[in-house]
Design a protein around this nucleic acid. Structure first.
Length: 850
RNA sequence: GGGCGAUUAGCUCAGCUGGCUAGAGCACCUCGUUUACACCGAGGGGGUCGGGGGUUCGAGUCCCUCAUCGCCCACCA
C-alpha cells in the first residue's frame, strides 16, 4: 500500500464510480429480505445543468439509500429526467429566437421532434453530473418523463378520471400569459405587489337621472363591462338597483345589480363587472346570469367585441386611450394611487390576463378530500412536521385544476372533438393523428398538452411499473419522497391525491422536504443576479465527498440556508483526516493479514470500543430518522477527536492491531454513506479488506469493559489538565508526582500526550494538585512558579463557589428534591461533592501561597 | 387580509419529548517542524439564548404578548 500524503479526489472518484457500476452494486439485491427501501428521485430537468438544490437533494437521498443498502435491505434509488414541459419550452423558444425564428414557423410535430433532439443532446452531460455527485442510482431503471410507461400512466389516469366524471371541459377563466401563449394553474401564477391607480369613472344612468361612479384599477376592461354591482345594504345606491347605466365608450345599457360580494368601504362602493377578465366578476356572472364579453384576446390585444377605435390595441395602450377619451368626455372623476397585487408569469414577468378559454379541468374536490383524510390519520410522516398542516390547509381550499397547456412540448391530451357537435369529446390515444373517424364521424385532436405536473403526479408508481410490475410489489409505497419544499403544493400534494386515487395506497411513507440553498448572503440564487453556485464546480474543487458533507452539514428539513463554503472546506479537511488515519493504521499493520476479531486489552482499547459503540448507536438512530446533519456531526467528532486525537496518539505507545483494524473498518462503514468515494478508495487499498465497501454490512460493535473505559476517560482529563496548566504557566515538560496505579500504568502515555518530564510515585504531594480527576496527581513545580498562576487560581475558586452555591440552593429546595427525577437529584449531589472537592484543593493551594 | 416560520458566540447554524455549569464549524488570539495529517497539533478568549410577562422544583426548550425579519396562501375591484 502506498497512500500519498493528502487525498486527491480526482485521482479516485471516476474509477471508484466505475467500480461500483461494473459490479452492479446499485441494482437492488436481497429482494426476498423482509425490508426494502426505495427513493425515486424527483427528476431534474433533462435539458438543464444540475443546480445546487439537486446537489443537496441527491446527497440526502444517496446517504439514506447507501445506509439502507448496507443494512442489507433491498434498496433502490431510481434515477430519472424530466421533459419539464413549460420550462424546456421557454428555453427552446429562446433558442429559436437566437436563430431569428419563432414557434409560428413550425408545426406542432416539427417542434416536438426538434425539442426532443435538443434535449437528447444534453443527456450525457446530465448523466455525467449524476455520477460526479456520487449518486448510487440504478441506471438500469432510469426513467424519462416521456417514456412510454409514464405516458401510458398519464393516459390511464386521464381515462379513469374521465370515466369517473372527474374530468370536465369547460369555458372558464384561465390564467393566461399572452407572451408565452399558454394558460397556467392558479398555483403557477406569481403575485407581486405593484403600484397602480384606482380610477373613478362616471357611469351615467340610462334615464339621465344621475350617475354612478365606479372605481377600477383596469379602466380598459370597461369595454367588456356587463353590469355595475353594489352592496344590497348600501343606502347610497338603494334606489339605483334595477336601473341601467349607459356604459361610456361602448354605449351599451347595462344593469345595476346588488350582490353581497361588494365591499361598501372600498372605492366608491360600486363595482364594474367584467366577467371575461376577472375571477370575481366571472363568479358574479354565474350568480346573476350575465353575459361574458371577451375584449382581450389570447394575443393580448383588444378584440372585435370592443368599439372600433380600440380594436387591435395592446392592453397598456388601450388603457391610456380609454382614460384619454374619458377625460375628454369629462367622465373621469379622479385618480387615486394604490398598491395592489398583480399576477405575473413566473418565467417572463408578463402580467397574467384572466381570459375565457375552454380547457380540461380536474374536479379536485373528491381527490383532495381523500388526501386530507389520509394526511390526518398520519399515514405519511413529514420532515419538517409543520408542512403537513400547511398541506392540509392548502388542500382544503383547492380549486379545480386546469390541466391544458398551449405548448408543443409535452404529452398530447388524448381527446378528440366531434366535427359535428363541438360539445362532444371522446377519449382516444391516437394522438399522433390530427383527426380520426369513429362511427363515421370525424373527430379533431385537441391541440393542447398536459400540464407537466399532471403526468408527474404518478411518478412514484409509474416508474415502478404499476400495476403489475415486480418493482411495484417490492418498492411501493416509496420509502422517502425527498424534494424541495417549494414544490410541496404543485407536486407533493398531487402525488398524494393521484396516488391514492390510482393505486388506493399512499405513494410514499415519508416526505422529506429540503429548503432552498441561497447564496452566502442569504439571497436567492438566480442567473440574472449572477450569484449561482454550481455544485459541479465545487465537486471538482473540493471533491464529491466534501461537497456532499458540506452541503448537508447544518441541513435541517424545510429551512432555507445560505451556501457556506467553509463547511465544504471543513468536510474536505475531514476527508483528508480519514485518509491519514488510514495511512497511519496501514503503517502500523503493515502486512499483517491475519484476520482477527477485535481483542481489547488496554484501557484505551476499551474506551475506544465503547465510544465506537455509542457513536454507532447514535448515528444509526439519526439515520433512521433522517437527521443527517446530526449523524454527520457525531461521526466527525468521533473520528477526529476520539479516534484520531486520542486513540491513535495512544496507539503510538502501544498499538493493538486488532482494534486498529476493527475500528478503521467500522469508521469507513459508518462514514460511507456520507463520504462514499474516499471510504471506498481507502477500503480498496486496505490489505485485509475484501469485496466492496458499498455493499458491506453496517457495523455492529461488541461491548467493552466500562470500568476500563472509565480509567482511560480519566486519563484524558488528567492529560488535558496538564496541557492547560503547562500552557498557562509556560512550563516545559513539568515533572509529575502521583499516588495512582492508573498513572503508574500509563506513565509513557502521559509523558507523550501531555509532554511531561518524569512521572513518579510519591508519599507526600507538593506543587499544584490536579482537579480534573479523582486520582491524586500533582504538577511538581516550585511555589514561585505557582504564584504566577495564583490569579487564575482565584478565578477558578470564585467559579467553584458560585457553582456550589447554585447546587446547594437547588438541593435545599424541598420541591426540587421531591419532584425532580431521582437521577437528576443524584447527579446534582454528585456534581456538588465534585465541586466541593475541587474547591478544597484550590483553597489548599491558595492558602499555601499566601 | 389569512397562515406559517425565524430571532442562540463576529459569521453560518445545532440544541429531537423542559434537567445546560448553553454546543459545533468557520473566524479570532497564543504556542508548536512530537516520523498519519500544517487540508495539522496543543491551549485560549467570546453568548444575561430578540424584549416583557406567565406556567414549573427547574425554561434556549412550553404558554401569552410585543418587536424585527422571512416565507407561503388569498378574488379587495
Amino acid at each position: 500500500m502506498n497512500l500519498s500524503k493528502t487525498y486527491t479526489p480526482s485521482d479516485h472518484e471516476t474509477k471508484i464510480y466505475e467500480l461500483w457500476e461494473n459490479n452492479h452494486t446499485f441494482t437492488p439485491k436481497n429482494r426476498g429480505s423482509k425490508k426494502s427501501f426505495s427513493i425515486v428521485i424527483p427528476p431534474p430537468n433533462a435539458n438543464g445543468n444540475l443546480h445546487i438544490g439537486h446537489g443537496l437533494g441527491f446527497a440526502v437521498e444517496d446517504i439514506a439509500v447507501r445506509y439502507h443498502r448496507m443494512k442489507g435491505e433491498a434498496s433502490l434509488l431510481l434515477p430519472g429526467a424530466d421533459h419539464a414541459g413549460f420550462e424546456t419550452w421557454v428555453v427552446y423558444e429562446k433558442h429559436l429566437a437566437a436563430q431569428g425564428k419563432s414557434r409560428f414557423d413550425f408545426t406542432r410535430e416539427e417542434l416536438y421532434s426538434q425539442i426532443w433532439d435538443f434535449v437528447a443532446q444534453n443527456k450525457d452531460n446530465y448523466e455525467t453530473q449524476f455520477r460526479q455527485l456520487g449518486a448510487s442510482v440504478d441506471w438500469t431503471r432510469y426513467t424519462y418523463t416521456l417514456d412510454k410507461k409514464i405516458v401510458k400512466q398519464a393516459y390511464s389516469s386521464f381515462k379513469k378520471m374521465w370515466d369517473d366524471g372527474l374530468i370536465y371541459r369547460a369555458q372558464k377563466l384561465v390564467n393566461f400569459c399572452t407572451y408565452h401563449g399558454t394558460g397556467f394553474a392558479d398555483i403557477e401564477v406569481s403575485h407581486k405587489e405593484s403600484k397602480g391607480h384606482l380610477w373613478h369613472i362616471r357611469y351615467p344612468l340610462s334615464d339621465g337621472s344621475g350617475e354612478v361612479v365606479v372605481a377600477t384599477t383596469r379602466p380598459e376592461t370597461m369595454l367588456g363591462d356587463v353590469a355595475v354591482a353594489v352592496h344590497p345594504k348600501d343606502k347610497r345606491y338603494a334606489t339605483f338597483v334595477g336601473k341601467t347605466v349607459r356604459l361610456p365608450l361602448s354605449n351599451r345599457d347595462i344593469p345595476i345589480i346588488a350582490d353581497d360580494f361588494v365591499d361598501m368601504k372600498f372605492g366608491t362602493g360600486a363595482v364594474k363587472i367584467t366577467p371575461a377578465h376577472d375571477q370575481n366578476d366571472y363568479d358574479m356572472s354565474e350568480r346573476h346570469d350575465l353575459p361574458r364579453i371577451s375584449i382581450i384576446g389570447h394575443d393580448g390585444l383588444i378584440t372585435h367585441e370592443a368599439p372600433e377605435e380600440f380594436i387591435g390595441l395592446d392592453v397598456v395602450s388601450a388603457r391610456e386611450k380609454v382614460v384619454n377619451v374619458l377625460i375628454a368626455q369629462n367622465l373621469l372623476e379622479r385618480r387615486e394611487e394604490i398598491v395592489h397585487n398583480v399576477g405575473h408569469c413566473y418565467k417572463c414577468g408578463t402580467v397574467i390576463e384572466p381570459l375565457l378559454r375552454e380547457q380540461w379541468f380536474i374536479d379536485t374536490t373528491p381527490l383532495a378530500k381523500e388526501a386530507i383524510k389520509t394526511l390526518k390519520t398520519n399515514e405519511i410522516s413529514f420532515h419538517p412536521t409543520v408542512k403537513k398542516k400547511q398541506l392540509i390547509t392548502y388542500l382544503e381550499g383547492l380549486r379545480d385544476w386546469n390541466i391544458s397547456r398551449q405548448i408543443a412540448w409535452g404529452i398530447p391530451i388524448p381527446a378528440f372533438q366531434s366535427s359535428q357537435d363541438a360539445s362532444k369529446w371522446i377519449f382516444d390515444e391516437r394522438v399522433t393523428k390530427e383527426s380520426i373517424t369513429v362511427d363515421g364521424v370525424v373527430y379533431h385532436r385537441d391541440p393542447d398538452v398536459f400540464d407537466t405536473w399532471f403526468s408527474s403526479s404518478s411518478w412514484p408508481y409509474a416508474t415502478l411499473d404499476y400495476p403489475d410490475g415486480k418493482d411495484f410489489a417490492t418498492f411501493y409505497p416509496v420509502s422517502v419522497m425527498e424534494t424541495g419544499a417549494d414544490i410541496l403544493y404543485p407536486w407533493v400534494s398531487r402525488m398524494i391525491m393521484l396516488g391514492l386515487y390510482n393505486t388506493g395506497a399512499i405513494p410514499f411513507e415519508t416526505v422529506y422536504l429540503h429548503g432552498l440553498i441561497q447564496d452566502e448572503h442569504g439571497q436567492k440564487m438566480s442567473k440574472s443576479k449572477g450569484n449561482v453556485v454550481n455544485p459541479i464546480d465545487k465537486v471538482l474543487k473540493f471533491g464529491s465527498d466534501a461537497f456532499r458533507m458540506g452541503i448537508i452539514s447544518g441541513e435541517s428539513a424545510g429551512n432555507n440556508r445560505p451556501y457556506d463554503e467553509s463547511k465544504v472546506v471543513g468536510a474536505r479537511n475531514f476527508c483528508n483526516k480519514l485518509w491519514n488515519i488510514a495511512r497511519f493504521v496501514q503503517e502500523k499493520i503493515e502486512d499483517d493479514l491475519a484476520s482477527s476479531e477485535p481483542n481489547p486489552i488496554s484501557d484505551a482499547d476499551h474506551w475506544l470500543l465503547s465510544k465506537l459503540q455509542h457513536t454507532t448507536e447514535v448515528v444509526t438512530k439519526d439515520l433512521d430518522n433522517m437527521r443527517l446533519s446530526e449523524a454527520y456531526d457525531t461521526l466527525y467528532h468521533f473520528v477526529w477527536d476520539d479516534f484520531a486525537s486520542w486513540y491513535l496518539e495512544a496507539s503510538k505507545i502501544s498499538p493493538n492491531l486488532s482494534i486498529l483494524k476493527f475500528s478503521l473498518s467500522s469508521i469507513l462503514k459508518l462514514c460511507h454513506p456520507f463520504a462514499p468515494f474516499i471510504t471506498e478508495a481507502i477500503w480498496q487499498e486496505l490489505a485485509w479488506s475484501d469485496e466492496l465497501l458499498i455493499i458491506s454490512p453496517w457495523p455492529t460493535i461488541p461491548d467493552a469493559s466500562k470500568p476500563k473505559a472509565k480509567k482511560f476517560e480519566d486519563l484524558t482529563y488528567i492529560i488535558t489538565e496538564i496541557r492547560q496548566l503547562s500552557k498557562a504557566m509556560n512550563l516545559s515538560k513539568p515533572n509529575i508526582i502521583h499516588q495512582s496505579a492508573t498513572i503508574e500504568d500509563n506513565a509513557d502515555l502521559i509523558t507523550n500526550l501531555a509532554r511531561t518530564g518524569s512521572i513518579a510515585l510519591t508519599d507526600q504531594g507538593r506543587g499544584l494538585k490536579l482537579t480534573s480527576a479523582k486520582q491524586h496527581v500533582w504538577l511538581d513545580i516550585p511555589d514561585e512558579v505557582l504564584t504566577s498562576y495564583s490569579k487564575k487560581l482565584v478565578e477558578r475558586q470564585q467559579e467553584q463557589i458560585k457553582l456550589i452555591a447554585n447546587f446547594e440552593a437547588r438541593l435545599s429546595n424541598k420541591s426540587y428534591v421531591d419532584h425532580a427525577p431521582q437521577k437528576i437529584v443524584d447527579d446534582t449531589k454528585q456534581s456538588l461533592s465534585d465541586a466541593k472537592a475541587v474547591l478544597e484543593t484550590l483553597e489548599d493551594e491558595l492558602k499555601r501561597l499566601s
